Simulated assay, not measured.
Amino acid sequence: MASFVKAALAVTAVLATFVSPPTSSAAETLRINGTGAGLVVVKPLAEAFQKENRGIVIEMEKSLGSSAAIKAVSRNALDLAISGRTLKPAESAEGLVQQEWGKTPMAVLANRGVRSKGVTLKELAAMYAGSSAKWPGGELVRVVLRPNEDTDTKLTRSMSPEMDRGVGAAQGRKDMLLGITDNEAFESLKKTEGAVAVMALSLALAEPNSVNVLKLDGVLPSVANAASGKYRFVKDMHLVMRKDAPAAVAKFVKFLNSKKGRSIAAKYGLVVPGTK
């Protein structure tokens, strides 16, 4: 009798594996990556989305940057890329589509030790050119650059003819600090005394009080000022996916553009169309 009970219990245990409710491993996975300035905005949005959609798990690894993430989407290694640039014709030809998501101010950020509260565009250009070596408080200016072909570098150059020349001069110097990715540049800014860089405001808002956000020509780089056009230097963010993207992608994109999604994004420096 004892052996029969043991056998019955064993059969019951095996059957239970087929009738038990699905575990979290059965959830649909949404793989996202892209530019670091975009991922810091996506992180809180992903957390809010998953609370409302328990059947979808969002995975985000260390930032790959726009180009690498776009390539990963085309190869089905990612489902959604957050890009700081538009698709190239060759990328569109691979079956990729994009949507404009929003824009974040390209802000002048300085190391926390810098005592200045703002700069003019002319002063900033002089810092990049090397003709202004110190901050008003006496700190040595250390410019943090991005690669010459990077979108942020192009945006910085486009701020004025003086900035274009200043960035060109800085790119030709060997003593400059260089961050290959958003995250590398931001870390260099945080740890280097006197450092300055033109970077997405979203990076600073994701880590409050880690750097100084400076006024540029007397205007604070903020969501409100970017939305109104008062602050005119911005970086566009795009959502890149395959034409045959899984349904979870469309669901997440819809959330990003919802009233709740726009509100969360605004707290982290991104102006999504429809945000007031």
Rank of each mutant, 00 (worst) to 15 (best):
N257T: 14
V234T: 13
L256M: 14
A248Q: 13
A247W: 13
L239I: 11
S222Q: 05
M237W: 12
D217H: 02
G229D: 10
F233C: 10
D236N: 06
F252R: 00
K243I: 14
V240S: 01
A226I: 05
A247G: 08
K235E: 15
D244L: 11
V223T: 05
D217L: 03
A227F: 02
R242S: 07
Y231S: 08
A245K: 03
Y231W: 08
V249P: 06
P246R: 04
G229W: 04
S228R: 04
R242A: 09
K254E: 15
D236Y: 01
Y231R: 01
A227K: 03
N257H: 10
M241L: 13
M241T: 15
F233A: 09
V223D: 07
M237K: 01
G229I: 06
K251Y: 08
A224M: 06
K235T: 10
Y231V: 09
M241S: 14
V249E: 13
L220C: 03
G218C: 03
R232Q: 14
R242K: 07
A250I: 06
L239D: 12
Y231C: 11
V223G: 02
A224G: 05
L239Q: 03
A250W: 13
N257G: 11
S222E: 13
S222V: 07
A245R: 06
M237T: 08
K251D: 15
R242M: 10
P221K: 00
R232C: 03
A226M: 05
A227H: 03
F255W: 05
K243T: 14
S228I: 11
V223L: 06
G229A: 09
A247M: 13
H238R: 03
L256Q: 04
S222W: 01
K235I: 14
F233V: 06
V219K: 00
D217M: 02
K235R: 09
N257C: 05
P221Q: 01
H238S: 11
P221A: 05
D236V: 02
R232T: 06
K243D: 09
G218F: 02
D217K: 00
N225V: 05
P246L: 08
V234E: 04
A224L: 12
M241G: 04
S228Y: 08
V253E: 12
M241H: 08
G218S: 05
A245D: 10
K230L: 12
S222G: 12
L220H: 04
S222P: 10
L220S: 15
L256S: 02
M237C: 03
D244W: 13
F255K: 00
P246E: 11
P221W: 00
K254L: 09
K254N: 15
F252L: 10
V219Y: 01
A250T: 14
D217I: 02
K251V: 09
V234Y: 00
A245H: 09
D244A: 13
L239R: 00
F252M: 07
F233Q: 09
A224F: 05
A226H: 01
K235S: 14
S228L: 12
H238M: 11
V219N: 03
M237D: 12
K251E: 15
V240T: 02
R242V: 13
A247V: 14
P246H: 05
G229V: 09
R232P: 11
